[in-house]
Design a protein around this nucleic acid. Sequence first.
DNA 1: TACACTTTGTAGCATATGCTACATTCCCGA
DNA 2: TCGGGAATGTAGCATATGCTACAAAGTGTA
Lengths: 140, 140
Amino acid sequence: MPNRPNPFAKTRRDHADETAEDYVEAIADIEIASGSCRVKDLAERMQVSHVTVTRILSRLADGGLVAREPYGPVGLTPRGLEMAAASRTRHEIVVAFLERIGVSNATAEHDAEGMEHHASKETLAAMRRFLSRAEDVRPG
Amino acid sequence: MPNRPNPFAKTRRDHADETAEDYVEAIADIEIASGSCRVKDLAERMQVSHVTVTRILSRLADGGLVAREPYGPVGLTPRGLEMAAASRTRHEIVVAFLERIGVSNATAEHDAEGMEHHASKETLAAMRRFLSRAEDVRPG
DNA sequence: TACACTTTGTAGCATATGCTACATTCCCGA
DNA sequence: TCGGGAATGTAGCATATGCTACAAAGTGTA
Ligand SMILES: [Mn+2]
Ligand SMILES: [Mn+2]
Ligand SMILES: [Mn+2]
Ligand SMILES: [Mn+2]
């Protein structure tokens, strides 16, 4: 029953997972880019206050996705790492797909940030198929 | 500046418009399907309690999108009608597009309900182009 | 007409996510 | 080492969206 029979309820469920997915993905990104992730880095990335970040990180820590100690850097648990990897993969598929149908990179990044959370496995599979076919047809 | 320079902020803005867009679209749908739209119809459609619907309708009425009187049916103002038409058009484009890349109708309807709010003009234009081309290529 | 059922409204609670203002801690350079 | 700026934490407020429980209004049928 991945798709219970109401689109609006499904969208609400997608949104309930969205913050966790975006934050763990951002944490992984920032760790890779600059060695360690701080509250401040996330606040800048998300364009919210550090207060909002701190509260959300507490919840993610309670949920076993994030490792936190006061005034320390932000880390990911094994589960957080897993979710980050999956989120990044999905993000990349959606961005690549949008670009392939002719959307500019900037817009693709903007739209994908929201759309990615609503793309079901079936839709992601369709996007992947489309990308593969396009690669088959065009050389390089 | 339709795209201010942060994907997460853009996604939050998309979400801020989402409820209004979905509700006016639903109201228009229900009016067409059954002659008049009641609180109860919306609660069923959205799969939420009638309390949630009532509160949201009050806000939409304050915003000049919805016409309300106590215990009466739910109507749309001219602005509400406009928004409903635009929302429906966009919804149909996204659904048709997903189906065209091979997603089943049920999944397309589910995913589109969330994705539609994040599809920028540029992305919608790309989807439209894709649909037109596909129509050119395949007969019928 | 009267009563029962349905529908809508209201009170009050909960969670998630924003914010500013202020307190505390950390860290680096003098 | 210490003093000040940067980073983080906390208090308290706001909005949006969910809910249940109860109250009030509307509707149809006996
Ligand atoms: Mn995202
Ligand atoms: Mn969304
Ligand atoms: Mn929608
Ligand atoms: Mn819709």
